Simulated assay, not measured.
Amino acid sequence: MTETLLVTGASGQLGRAVINHLLEAQKIAPASIIATTRSPENLADLAARGVVVRAADFNDKASLEKAFAGADRVLIISTGDLDLKTGQRLKQHETAVAAAKAAGVSHLLYTSMPNPEPGSPVLFAGDHYGTEQAIKASGIPYTIFRNGWYQENLFMALPHAISAGKWYTSAADGRIAHGARDDMAAAIAAGLASGSSESHIYTLTGPHAYTVGEIAALVSEVTGKPLEVVQLPDEALTEGVKAAGVPEDFARIIVSFDANTRAGRIALVTDTVEALSGRKPRTLKQFLEANKAALLG
């Protein structure tokens, strides 16, 4: 019997990419895929292809139980609610895990982050660690994907840095193996479609870990623009990010990424993307070359 695969957050970039890989690379029949979102009208194109589209609100357990009904394997893509004062995201994830158990889901999959354990400098790491604990406590066999930082996240800093000729950071000589979002989506889709009933934790990364200085050198090589790395203490960097118009809470989250890099907690390089998906991951240089025009504004 063909298993029914469900993807939450299906209107987001990662969710859509996972579904595309299920359809194209994994050759899953559209009728065996359930795509959930708060706004089903945003998935009209998937519905037209035969994918089952359902409404699901992570703040409403009843809606999640209804959405998860009949699903064998459920991928919970972490939500974008980063209000650290309320702990809302962890509550949402715990609600989804409870709904999956109530719906009789046979395998639960989740998108986490590398090294989310207590002590992580990343301000929202507790959301991921708490969700992993809730999944383990549910008794449902699980696959946890600890997604490394996306290459696409560099768009938050690089265009402005290239324009100014200076890249402000507090990451020191910490290394980070940025990976392509679509590569991680391909690996996640393969895991979702695998039928494996065993519990696994996978860390998904790009193929090479670089320091900020090494990334800046690559950027200069690709764009022809000089880019000086300026190291700052965390608080000074936070004030600079705030001065650029970023709200304080989010500025502190951004700077916590650099603190995490400096601490060596995101330097891991794995071959898991290729092992799961069967495809070579995109290198950072390939990303920069493909996005040169966008980076130069």
Rank of each mutant, 00 (worst) to 15 (best):
P118H: 07
P114I: 03
I188R: 06
P226W: 07
A96M: 13
R89G: 04
E3F: 14
A236F: 06
L154E: 02
T211N: 04
A67G: 05
L22M: 01
D271R: 15
D127F: 06
T205I: 11
D127L: 04
L158Q: 08
S277W: 10
T169P: 13
S106Y: 00
L6C: 00
I176P: 03
R181H: 00
F287P: 07
T131W: 03
R279A: 08
V269F: 14
G15R: 04
N260H: 12
A244D: 09
A17C: 06
V97A: 07
L154T: 12
S106T: 12
P226F: 00
V51E: 03
A294G: 15
R175F: 01
Q26A: 07
M184D: 11
T223E: 08
I201G: 02
L218Y: 02
Q231P: 10
S138R: 01
P121Y: 05
D72W: 05
G104H: 09
S220W: 05
S256N: 07
A103N: 04
A71V: 11
P159I: 00
L192S: 10
I140R: 05
L237Y: 05
A190D: 07
L192V: 10
I176S: 05
Q92N: 12
L43N: 03
H93I: 00
A47K: 14
D271E: 14
A251W: 09
T86M: 09
S170A: 15
S197M: 15
S106M: 05
Q92T: 05
H178S: 08
V219G: 06
T261S: 13
L284I: 12
A263E: 13
A17T: 01
D60G: 01
A243D: 05
W167S: 09
G165Q: 03
A251Q: 07
I34C: 07
D60I: 12
K101Y: 04
A294D: 15
H160I: 14
R181F: 04
D249G: 14
G87H: 07
E214M: 02
G104C: 02
A125P: 04
R282F: 13
A236D: 13
K27M: 14
G278R: 10
V18W: 08
A25E: 14
I144S: 06
E94Q: 15
A125I: 06
N59A: 10
H208S: 04
R16N: 09
Q88L: 15
I140T: 01
T37D: 04
L123K: 00
G80C: 11
R252V: 00
V230K: 00
P118F: 02
L5C: 13
Q92K: 06
T238E: 01
E152G: 12
G80N: 14
E221R: 08
G12Y: 00
T143F: 06
P40N: 10
S78D: 06
S220I: 09
R73A: 03
F155P: 12
S199D: 02
T283L: 07
I176F: 13
G240R: 14
A98G: 10
V51W: 02
G148A: 10
I34Y: 05
